[in-house]
Design a protein around this nucleic acid. Structure first.
Length: 346
DNA sequence: AAAGCGTGGGA
DNA sequence: TTCCCAAGCTT
């Protein structure tokens, strides 16, 4: 039996029982694929169920507001996925009468759907033989075929797509795609690979050469940018506060936060009250400011390290654009803000 | 085409 | 602690 069929047989015996594997519904498959981009199944599975429950059809998703979609996405990260998912749902309802395109080429044109997702949907839902190449596939193929081209180089991306495409079965390509990914997730793992029970161990070059962990090859290290965030947590009589929406093309776009003073370095109270942002917010001297967390909270992202201070500013009287503290959970906020709010309540 | 975009878990 | 990784996409 060849590579592909071994994978398929292994998969049929060993696949996990996951909610989106129970039936083929294009909308559900699309939803699951977007949620799982750069995301582990354990992390995404509850979000998938919540989205299915709140938006049973693409029409329900299209009808929703972006704030509502982002709120349900809160905590999952990479929020452009949610914005694109929602935008594409509206687009499909408006232009295609709610019918999701049934082929790779048309799927690829949609916002938030790239080569991987278009291939996954086309193969699983429409039996189109387009090979998926995700992190699992890179790992399995690079080990099995001893390919050391960096997987994050243009050359590597092209090469692995070509290898994967040459292996896909015309019969049930969706099952083949899921099989190779499942093998990568369950057996051919980054660390602690279970080569002893691997169905394709016998012909795996890396196993034979005893250098499984030399693959896949990745080049370039990312450098981490340090940023300093000072959130101004206005507290009006313990009843109201202020949130603003992040509009810039930056992390957490369209999510909400407390008014923010970003600085080049760590700053103190004296510098905070001198800022324009502070004085635009607080018009008189009738306030009391204090630092909530004595040590900056370090929030780590893939490319950034955010040193965060929460400044509590107690005032009396009125301010514009306030919200009630008890309504704050209606807003989609970064997990950093969410954690603060949960802690601050106590 | 390189860089930016989250969060959490495991080694 | 630090680093790596996770069903990638966009600009």
């Amino acid at each position: 039996m060849d590579f592909s069929n071994k994978l398929i047989y292994w998969y049929l015996d060993n696949k996990r029982d996951l909610p989106w594997r129970n039936e083929v519904n294009v909308y559900h498959i699309w939803l699951s694929e977007v949620i799982l981009q750069q995301t582990k199944i354990v992390q995404g599975i509850d979000y998938y169920l919540v989205f299915c429950k709140n938006f049973p059809t693409i029409f329900d998703l299209a009808k929703a507001g972006e704030d509502e979609v982002l709120k349900l996405w809160q905590g999952l990260g990479y929020y452009s996925r949610a914005r694109n998912l929602h935008s594409t749902a509206k687009y499909i309802v408006e232009n295609f009468n709610g019918e999701i395109p049934d082929n790779y080429n048309d799927l690829l044109k949609l916002k938030g759907i790239g080569d991987y997702t278009a291939s996954a949907i086309a193969s699983i839902c429409f039996n189109e033989p387009k090979a998926v190449v995700d992190g699992n596939v890179y790992r399995v193929l690079s080990r099995y075929y001893n390919v050391s081209t960096p997987i994050n180089s243009p050359k590597g991306i092209k090469q692995f797509k070509q290898i994967a495409q040459s292996k896909i079965t015309k019969y049930d390509p969706g099952t083949y795609n899921q099989a190779i990914m499942e093998l990568g997730a369950l057996i051919c793992k980054p660390k602690k690979a279970d080569c002893n029970i691997c169905p394709i161990q016998k012909d795996c070059k890396a196993y034979i050469n005893n250098n499984v962990y030399s693959f896949p090859v990745k080049e370039k290290k990312i450098k981490i940018k340090k940023r300093f965030f000072n959130f101004l947590v206005i507290d009006i009589d313990g009843d109201q506060t202020i949130l603003e929406q992040r509009r810039q093309n930056d992390i957490w776009k369209n999510l909400y936060q407390f008014p923010l003073v970003e600085s080049e370095n760590e700053i103190d109270e004296l510098e905070i009250v001198k800022t324009i942002i502070f004085s635009n917010l607080i018009k008189d001297d009738n306030y009391k400011i204090s630092l909530y967390n004595t040590k900056p909270i370090i929030h780590k992202l893939t490319h950034q390290q955010i040193n965060t201070k929460f400044w509590i500013i107690k005032i009396k009287g009125n301010l514009d654009r306030t919200i009630k503290w008890k309504e704050i959970s209606n807003f989609a906020v970064p997990i950093l803000i969410h954690n603060f709010i949960e802690n601050f309540k106590k």
